[in-house]
Design a protein around this nucleic acid. Sequence first.
RNA 1: GUUCCCAUCGUCUAGCGGUUAGGACAUCGCCCUUUCAAGGCGGCAACACGGGUUCGAGUCCCGUUGGGAACGCCA
Length: 487
Amino acid sequence: MGRLWGVDRVSMTVVVRFAPSPTGFLHIGGARTALFNWLYARHMGGKFLLRIEDTDRERSTQQAIDAIFQSLEWLGLTWDAEPVFQFARAPRHAEVAHQLVKEGKAYYCYCSAEELETMRQEAAAKGLPPRYNGFWRDRDPSLAPKGVKPVVRFRAPQSGTTVLDDCVQGRVEIPNEQLDDMILLRADGTPTYMLSVVVDDHDMGITHVIRGDDHLTNMFRQYHLYKACGWETPTFAHIPLIHGPDRAKLSKRHGALGAEQYQAMGFLPEAMLNYLMRLGWAHGDDEVISMKQATEWFDIHDVGRSPARFDMAKLTHLNALYLRQADPERLLKDIEPYLKQQATEEEWGVGRLRILKGMRGLQERAKTLVELREHALFYVKRPEFSADNADQAGTAVFRSEALMSLKELMNLIEKTPFIEPGSLEGTLRDFCRQTSKKLGAFLAPARLALTGATVSPSLFEVMILLGRTETLERLALYQDFLLSLTN
RNA sequence: GUUCCCAUCGUCUAGCGGUUAGGACAUCGCCCUUUCAAGGCGGCAACACGGGUUCGAGUCCCGUUGGGAACGCCA
C-alpha cells in the first residue's frame, strides 16, 4: 500500500522538512522552499523539520550552518524539533545499503573513474544519456580486481516506465532506461545523497517532500529505493525554481544573494516572505498577504509549474509598504546600532527621541531600513556642508536668494513660539502670502540647512523636533557656509 | 545528445470552454503638495506559432518553436 495513493491521508499528520546543504548561505530559492514547507506544515497543522545535509565534508562549513539558522530565524521560519545532521547518521545509511546488498538489491561495483568516463563518452556517442552501463551488475564478484575498493550501487529497474504523482507536477512518467544504477555507498564507505535522503526522510517520518524541481528526476530514483527497502513512499511536491534575469536557474552569477544579504540591505522579513510566497503561488488578486493569512490559504497543490524570475523592484515595493506600516519603536531598534555608531552618546541621547517622534515622517519616505537610517541621521547629528556638494552649494543666484530666505526665516522663527506645530506653519504661510513668495522655494534653503539634503520629512515637523535653538543654529551654520562660498 | 518540465502585459500572476482577458510591480501622464515620498485618477502593455476537438478555445488534444532542469564516488 503506497501512501501516494493512500486511503488514510485525512488522519495523517503532515511532517515536512527543509534540507539545505551547508555549502553556502541560504539563498533566495532555498528560502522559498523553506517557506513553502513551513506554510504547508502550518496550514495542515503538521510539523516542519530541519535537516542539515552535511555529508559533503569538503564543502560543508559551520559558518554556512550558522548562516542558514540565522536566516531562517530572521524570517521566522521556526522548526519543530532539533535539527538533524545528516553526516551523524552515516552509519545508519551504510547499514541500509549493506542490507540491500545482502538482499541482492544492490551490488558492488569496481569501476574506476576512467572507466566510468569512457562509458559516459560511449553512451553519448550513441545518443544515449551519459551514464553507468551496469558493468558489475551481474558480473561475478570473484572477478573483482585486487586492491580496488568497490562502491555499492543500487540495482535499478532497466525497463518499463515509472509513473508518479506529484502535488505540483501532476502525473509524471519516465522510462526506466533513464535510471542508471546509482551509487549508494562511496568507495570509502560513506553514503551518497541519494541514499541518505531516502533513509532520513523515512526515519524522520516525512510525509511530504517539498523541494525544488531540480530534484524531479531524483524522485524516480528514490522511489525505487523506497520500494527496495520496503518503505512507504512520501508524497512529493516539486516546486519550480526561481530564475535569474537570463531565465537560468538562480545562481551566484546573478547576484543571487543570501537571505542575510537582503537583511543587510534593509529588507524586512515580512516583505521578503510576502514577496517569496507570491512566486509560483497566488490567491486570486491578493498581493499583500500576511503570514497568518497565508497559513490559512496556502496549499501546496495550488503552486504553479512555471518558473518565476526574481524581481528586485517588486520586493522593494513590498518592503516600502511594510516599512510604512511598521511600528516606530521596532524600526528604531532596527536602525539604532548604525545611528549610535555614527554619533556621540550625547547626540544619540537627543537624536533618539527626535527620531522616535519623527519616525512616521521618516518611514513613509524610505524603501529600506538602510534608507531609513540614512534619512534619520540628521536628527542625530548636524549636517556637514561641502562646496563639492552641488545640491548644498547651488548656483550663485540660488545662494543670494537662499541667504535672503534664511535671514527672513530666522527672523520669523525668533518671533514665533514653538509651542505647537500649527503656529509656526501658520506664521510662515501668512508670511509667504503677504510677500507673495512660494512656500516651497522659500523653504528650500532651510531644508538644506536643517537636514543637509534636498529630501526630508515635512520641514515644520523637522523644526519642531529639532527645537528652536537647534533650528536657528543649523540655519546660521548653513548661512555661514553660503557666505564662505560667496566670498 | 537523452529524458522530464514550462509557455497570459517588460516582471509576478488571476483565469479552471462563452471575460470589454482582471490585479500587482515597473513605466508614462494628471491631481494633491513646502521638497521627496505616500495617496488618488488615468494611459501604454499579454494569451509564442500552427493544426485539430467544439456552436464556441487563453482554457482541451497534437505538433512546431522557444526556454528551463536532470543525467557525479555534489547535494
